[in-house]
């Protein structure tokens, strides 16, 4: 896939963003100074060891947190200055999340977990359609505890894409899965991107997975160490970890 870098295709841009946490009497910088664009339709993999600030960056991109310095802009919107309510709306309409531990509501069935997202979105899919996309229609009435880890993650992906978000954020989506299941999940993400045209940002501490991304940003100690463009991203089944 070819990647253009023209301004018009930037969907979200992080400009000199920093995030300092105040822990008791000391300031702990989790993110120092990060500048990064997210291109429409790309798969940006953010890698880095634990403590490098990748989760903090994802939180800023996902509208779950605000930078203490710099800016995170989505279109005209500066996520650092808008109200809580607007930030919630941003999450509601623009962002889809996929977590390492799925975060499904245990007392809701697969289908109902997807309804949690579709019920308040602007132009959602039919929840069943989302289930179809992840190939789990036959599990619609199962509770999370009745599903395997891979299945739970697929439900979680279905929940994320069902509200047709602009950006899909995946936080270690394969972290709790075995290799084979992990590959299936990555394949699913790629297939959905092809079908639905979403922009995906995936964070992982697993450097091998970086090979499937269009671009790879490496974080270290709260700054972007490098951004590399993958001329030929690998298919998930070509990656081992």
């Amino acid at each position: 896939m070819s990647v253009t870098t023209s301004q018009s295709s930037v969907i979200l841009s992080v400009q000199s963003a920093g995030r300092v946490y105040r822990m008791g009497e000391v300031d702990v910088p989790a993110l120092r100074d990060v500048t990064l664009d997210l291109q429409r339709g790309e798969l940006l993999v953010i890698i880095g060891p634990s403590g490098s600030g990748k989760s903090t960056l994802l939180n800023l991109i996902g509208g779950m947190d605000r930078p203490t310095s710099g800016h995170v802009r989505f279109g005209e919107m500066d996520l650092g200055v808008i109200s809580d309510r607007e930030l919630t709306r941003y999450r509601r309409f623009e962002i889809g999340f996929v977590f390492q531990f799925y975060n499904l509501v245990p007392s809701l069935t697969a289908l109902e977990n997807i309804q949690v997202a579709t019920e308040m979105a602007g132009d959602p899919m039919d929840p069943l359609e989302a289930l179809e996309l992840v190939d789990l229609v036959d599990r619609a009435d199962h509770f999370p505890s009745q599903l395997s880890g891979g299945e739970q993650q697929r439900i979680s992906i279905a929940r994320a894409i069902a509200k047709r978000p602009q950006i899909l954020l995946c936080d270690e989506p394969t972290g709790a899965l075995d290799i084979e299941t992990g590959q299936q999940i990555l394949n699913l993400l790629l297939r959905l991107r092809a079908e639905l045209g979403q922009t995906i940002s995936l964070i992982t501490h697993n450097a091998s997975i970086a090979h499937i991304g269009d671009r790879v940003a490496t974080l270290k100690d709260g700054i972007v160490e490098s951004i590399e463009i993958n001329e030929r991203p690998l298919r998930p089944e070509e990656v081992q970890w």
């Binding site: 996902g62 779950m64 309510r85 919630t88 709306r89 941003y90 999450r91 509601r92 309409f93 962002i95 999340f97 975060n103 499904l104 509501v105 949690v116 997202a117 308040m120 979105a121 929940r159």
Partner: peptide, 16 residues
């Protein structure tokens, strides 16, 4: 608590 987190991240307001 975890459900609260899930709902919040999905875009539910505190009130909701």
């Amino acid at each position: 608590e975890r459900e609260v987190g899930t709902f919040r991240v999905l875009g539910y307001t505190k009130g909701e």
